[in-house]
């Protein structure tokens, strides 16, 4: 029934994982997030601030990149493949509970980590980073447009923006670190396809459309 049965006969056979639209969504979001992180570091770390100066310019770049950050995802909603993947990311099945428990217990055995197209860690990350980005956008707007709200709101927004920025930096480093440790996953986002072997090992419950 499945074409995967004859994988050894066609070692080069690859499975489609991401559409062109999805790859561009990830690419542009990553670039905008990168600009946000670098400019934030310049605004935040005194040594870098002194080195670069030009605070007004750096602030403007940071604001524009932050404002644009949700745009690729919003435009991407026009893509059927992206909407389908968002549904996969949203829905948690019983196997995701198994995966999360194994992750908490640091159980690295493949059998302990059942996953569909996305594993439970990827699902939690996607949902959290989406929410965190919007919180950063909201608090950022309060800091930017001072007349929107009383000043004490601005101070509170600054507090949340600073602490959440630190949290995002740590989580993002984890996201990038895990991608660095998995070349085939990176290939999936670069070329759109992954090897059957990788899919079977990392995402055994994933049933890609032919």
């Amino acid at each position: 029934m499945s074409p995967r049965a004859d994988a050894p006969a066609r070692p080069a056979a690859r499975i489609r994982r991401f559409s062109r639209a999805e790859r561009w969504i990830h690419r542009t979001t990553a670039a905008l997030m990168g600009v946000c992180v670098v400019t934030a570091a310049v605004l935040y770390i005194p040594q870098l601030a002194v080195l670069v100066g030009r605070r007004a310019l750096v602030v403007r770049v940071h604001e524009c990149a932050g404002l644009a950050l949700p745009v690729p995802v919003l435009l991407g909603l026009a893509s059927r493949a992206f909407r389908a993947d968002l549904r996969f990311l949203n829905r948690f099945g019983p196997h995701d509970k198994v995966w999360l428990r194994a992750a908490l217990l640091r159980d690295r055995r493949r059998a302990a980590r059942p996953a569909g197209k996305f594993n439970a860690g990827q699902k939690v990350y996607a949902a959290w980073i989406a929410g965190a980005t919007l919180v950063m956008l909201g608090t950022g707007l309060l800091m930017w447009f001072t007349h929107l709200a009383p000043l004490v709101w601005r101070t509170s927004a600054t507090f949340v923006h600073d602490w959440l920025a630190l949290t995002i930096a740590v989580v993002l480093a984890g996201h990038i670190g895990m991608a660095l440790g998995d070349p085939e996953a990176r290939k999936g986002l670069r070329t759109g396809t992954v090897s059957q072997e990788w899919a079977r090992q990392r995402h055994p419950l994933w049933r890609p459309r032919p």
């Binding site: 949203n90 829905r91 939690v124 419950l205």
Partner: peptide, 26 residues
């Protein structure tokens, strides 16, 4: 498989929960 389509919408809860925590933080 059905669990990929019809599971619990945990993603949405995490997303809305993060937004709520952000507002609470402010």
């Amino acid at each position: 498989p059905p669990e990929e389509r019809d599971g619990t919408p945990v993603g949405r809860r995490v997303f809305l929960g993060t937004l709520g925590l952000g507002a609470l933080g402010v």
